[in-house]
Design a protein around this nucleic acid. Sequence first.
DNA 1: AAAACTCATGTCATCGATGACATAGTTGCT
DNA 2: AGCAACTATGTCATCGATGACATGAGTTTT
Lengths: 335, 335
Amino acid sequence: MTTMQDVATRAGVSAKTVSRVFNDDPHVTEDTRERVQAAMRELKYVPNMLARTFREGKSAVIGIAVPDVADPFFAAVTKGIELAAREHDMAIVVTSLGDNPSLEQSIIETTVRRQIDGLIIAPIAADQSYLLRWQDSFPIVFIDRIPTKLNADYFVEDDFGGAFEATQHLIAHGHRRIAIVGDSTDVPTTRLRLEGYRAALDDAGLKKDEELIALGSRDADAAAQICKTLLALPDAPTAIFSSNARFSTGVFPALQALNRTDIALISFGDFPMADVLQPSVSVIDQNPRQVGRVAAERILARIAAPTKRFRRKNVIPVKLIERQSCQSVGALSAS
Amino acid sequence: MTTMQDVATRAGVSAKTVSRVFNDDPHVTEDTRERVQAAMRELKYVPNMLARTFREGKSAVIGIAVPDVADPFFAAVTKGIELAAREHDMAIVVTSLGDNPSLEQSIIETTVRRQIDGLIIAPIAADQSYLLRWQDSFPIVFIDRIPTKLNADYFVEDDFGGAFEATQHLIAHGHRRIAIVGDSTDVPTTRLRLEGYRAALDDAGLKKDEELIALGSRDADAAAQICKTLLALPDAPTAIFSSNARFSTGVFPALQALNRTDIALISFGDFPMADVLQPSVSVIDQNPRQVGRVAAERILARIAAPTKRFRRKNVIPVKLIERQSCQSVGALSAS
DNA sequence: AAAACTCATGTCATCGATGACATAGTTGCT
DNA sequence: AGCAACTATGTCATCGATGACATGAGTTTT
């Protein structure tokens, strides 16, 4: 590997001068500059970022930790972060936390040792207090899920509002027995969505039936399974509110397999092909790319102005995209 | 930030001894070890990876460059790489190349400056000779697309075979006018798939009609558009071979919008919900996660044994997943 | 013409961890 | 006892780039 010293020797100057040329320092004669640049070209000099960043103590890297990079939602978030980061010559190191909350801390800590300049995290555990000690080393921004036992910036979707709207939408279409399918209430997101669901039922004066609250699934398959159980109930639901997109990709096929596309479905979170399924699935759209972008911009803003004050809690509005899956049976077949 | 020197002072030893304790060097008395460990705990010492890796000249990072991290295929590849990398305590830095080939080189070069230990790339440009000079610094592995103007390891799917099989499958279902939709033949992948398609037609003694070869689209929307054009042809195709999954997510809705789900469709590359669409879409499955894993393992193997020889060209078999979209009209409506 | 000032360039130290080597103290063996 | 072998620990240099400061040559000022 070619170093500045190599270039310096070749050009007959000191390493410092090479550094100056490289960094466009005006205090270099045109003549020297050209000789150095020629030497750089000949030796194909490439700066060693590791040395530079080591000296600065910073790595020009933003760490990203999400439950699963392959999940379309988080993949889109990642893309949003990446695009924003690139505008500031920052790279991103990405990590999947998986679904075992007890591993979260150690996975994060290996990331953090790399002297990242900022961390964007969608946590899976029920306690992020371990991040406290890092907070004055670099900015930390939570996305999708609020931090627990820690104060930090966060950008979350309007979980309560979205769930409320989704449920209300089902009610408006005449549904009275509405089930909710989701993961664990350990996840703050799910908790809030459940609350939104409950509030909408209350609002409409509907009875809340605990047997229609089907939480606790771990993946799409489990969601599909629980969906079958729900429909086998003596007093089965006529509509399902799927509290996240991942589960919707399990619930929809389950309904289809049972030939029960008469059951209304609405999903918190858009998902690929939701608009071309039959029936197309109404969703609460979260704009993940935007979430990623604003989170990254917050990190960058905090790096640029460490003392400035920012709004901690940021709720990103969600949008109901109405498709066919909530239409009443009559309306659907008539279409 | 706490350094080894801080810990050393606190424990009344030299920094080197702290280093020894940290690295489990046996030449430390139990007594000293404990004092140092206590000091580390009190000061919450965390090693500075940047310093370590700078000294080693390596960063314990694998660089990944793909056209788009948010694309489900590449997201899955990334996941596969990440899981393999983590087993070796390596992090991944991810970069999207976008769709402008002329930017590829500069994007890669910013990644490469970070002294990555290996690079996994799915290129978008038509010339990777610029990577030549890096080849003896760290292993480079191509995925999905073979390198151009460069010799390097690659792991690609069986493009020719898969396309052949897909086309043959359509022929077996009675189709005689089969269109192919894809991006540019600048992409080797597409070129090979086109060849597979042509070979299958030849094999069956079918006439190859140039107007059915609809390449050149840049995204799903363009693919949808071209699909409409195809169907408006006087002698329109009865089947479409979509040469990649991304485009299939454009073609399918287009067919549906035109109410032409009688047109058979097969997709090179599985995509989310393909199995629950109506009709469900037959695909050539590529197993992206596996592609990611083997690519990462090759990187790791090359790092571990720099002189060992490996097979350069690796073709990963693909698998036809038969669903409904190629069934003849009669069969489908009867199902 | 001497003093003051510019400007190009160089020298040295530094960032944190760690190899190479040094040193002082201890144990073991004849 | 005397010397080798070993052990615990320390000192120094190093990785590459770059800030702080130094130097020396040339230029301006009075």
